[in-house]
Amino acid sequence: MTDRPSWAPQGIDLTVPSVSRVYDYFLGGSHNFEVDREAARVALKAFPGIPKIGQANRAVMRRAVQFAVDRGIRQFLDIGSGIPTFGNVHEVAQAAAPGARVMYVDNDPVAVAHSKAVLADNPDAAIAAADLRDPRSILEHPETRRLLDLDQPIALMLVAVVHFLPDADRPAEIIATLRDALAPGSVMVITHATLLGPTPQAQRGVQEAYQRTTTPLLMRTAAELEPFFDGFDLVEPGIVPLPHWRPDSPVTEDDDTAALHGLAGVGLKA
């Protein structure tokens, strides 16, 4: 992939399930094709709680955006933004702070095309087709430059995307590159799949399901996520299961335990 000249586009193969469309299916959306649903069903069979994780993930994302807005942040860089469904970052942010600017980035051309359509009338939000593994191409993207002022604090959203980067891609270095471009006062939000809950077997089932996509999934523990926050101060309560990150209301038993299988953490760049 890196051998391709930068102007050579990535081909689109709709016969291979895509992470963003599978995720959309988990969220109850219909922005998906049968191959995606098929892959999703395989994963669901292994671990039926996945949609709850997705839901909890979206909820954490919403709370984290609110957290950033409360801190006065009006700019968002959402990498791995996926297919817009409901409660997207720009909706939450712009509802809380009209005029907030949101830059979306995804490497899935269908997700990008869909986002373009959704954002067509929104002057304060845009989408770029770029890859997290090439962070400079994101920072230097003309749309990023146009929309965001990196001299001012931003919220960097890495929501349910870092778990698609194997260690070989050196995720810590990628994040450090992004971090170095951030102004002090910026926040970084990471949510990530974790081993916590399901049995190893179920775990393997989910991972196998993702093997079918172009982007296999990786589980990491809270300790393994810590290095990603290098250069950030983790805000309370640290890296915790999704529902435990600054919940709106006390977590009750009838909240699905499946959501514990995702981790969330927010760092503040000093």
Binding site: P9, Q10, I12, H31, N32, V110, V112
Partner: peptide, 22 residues
């Protein structure tokens, strides 16, 4: 489904255009 298909088609056309351009 329709919007997704449109997006997919759009993306595909985009990719083909880019491919043709390249």
């Amino acid at each position: 489904q329709e919007s997704l298909s449109r997006a997919a088609l759009g993306a595909q056309a985009e990719a083909e255009r880019a491919l043709a351009a390249s």
